[in-house]
Design a binder for these strands. Structure first.
Length: 284
DNA sequence: CGCAGGCCCTGGTAGC
DNA sequence: TGCTACCAGGGCCTGC
């Protein structure tokens, strides 16, 4: 369940391992992993062989690897995707989906994904910013993120605040877990109407979003293992200091009231019944 | 047009 | 023990 901090940790680690290296053989082990690459697996492999990776970029939860050809490899980890560096010839992972060999015969890059919600594709001419992800908003860690434009856009909407935080065209990188954490910090219930929030309230919420993401990036960076370029799924992820997510029935770290769990968009939301009161009127 | 909700996936686990 | 049901959820797609 990688969100922005986990993806940023992967980006940073990956960058050290693949920048400047020339791709050798590419092997697609599962077609679903490149389902977004419409020309298919043979084209995917052919267009990448011999290309040199210029770096690793990120926007929100998307990664892309600009190539010397001007194209870029787009990667999204979905829920369970991992990008791993492994010595060439190391045993295949059970859920290995795509393997990138390198011309220098050094460590391979592997895309491993149990649930295959993630995937890879090649973006033609996408080195600067792939057209496929141009609709994704800048994330709040981006120096060019426009706070006031975000505040205005959010208040123009008529929806629930948690849904807006998860809307990647409004603000990117926030998933279910960090949305719950930011709402807990802001003492707002996720069902509050966006157009009923004041501009200062939205600014405060945005500051909490930024804080929680920054703290998680810091924590993720310290647990990074040199040869194992990933978030490591459960571990390192769940032992992070979470105040809301997954804490149903446990005392609120602010007031001691047991946290509640509610269903929202077919997933769980965790909040404090006392600090985060439900809106008096449901959205209409 | 904006918004809500369904679907895609599979391994782990709870419950019977 | 072995089976079933359910849960995790980001992003795309459809329909209202």
């Amino acid at each position: 369940m990688p969100e922005l901090p986990e993806v940023e940790t992967v980006r940073e680690g990956l960058s050290k391992w693949v920048t400047g290296r020339r791709i050798g053989a590419v092997e697609v082990r599962h077609p679903r992993a490149i389902r977004r690459h419409l020309p298919g697996d043979a084209h995917f492999a052919a267009v990448l062989a011999g290309r040199t990776i210029a770096g690793v970029s990120r926007r929100g939860k998307y990664l892309w690897l600009p190539l010397d050809s001007g194209d870029a490899v787009i990667a999204h980890l979905g829920m369970s995707g991992q990008l791993l560096m492994q010595p060439a010839g190391a045993p295949d992972e059970k859920h290995l989906r795509v393997r990138f060999g390198f011309a220098d015969s050094g460590p391979e890059l592997r895309f491993v994904d149990q649930r295959t919600f993630g995937g890879l594709s090649v973006s033609e001419g996408g080195g600067e910013l792939p057209a496929e992800i141009a609709h994704i908003a800048r994330d709040p860690m981006d120096p060019l993120f426009d706070d006031e434009a975000f505040v205005a856009a959010l208040r123009r909407k008529h929806t629930e605040i948690k849904r807006a935080l998860l809307d990647q065209t409004l603000i990117s990188g926030v998933g279910n877990i960090y949305a719950d954490e930011a709402l807990w910090r802001a003492e707002l219930h996720g069902a509050r109407a966006t157009d009923a929030l004041t501009a200062p309230a939205v600014r405060r919420l945005l500051a909490h979003v930024r804080d929680v993401l920054a703290e998680a990036i810091k924590a993720g960076g310290t647990s990074f293992d040199a040869l194992y370029v990933n978030v490591n799924g459960e571990s390192g992820y769940f032992d992070r200091a979470l105040h809301a997510y997954g804490r149903e029935g446990l005392p609120c770290d602010r007031c001691g009231t047991p946290l509640r769990r509610e269903q929202f968009m077919n997933r769980s939301s965790f909040s404090c019944p006392r600090c985060q009161s439900r809106p008096r009127q449901p959205l209409r």
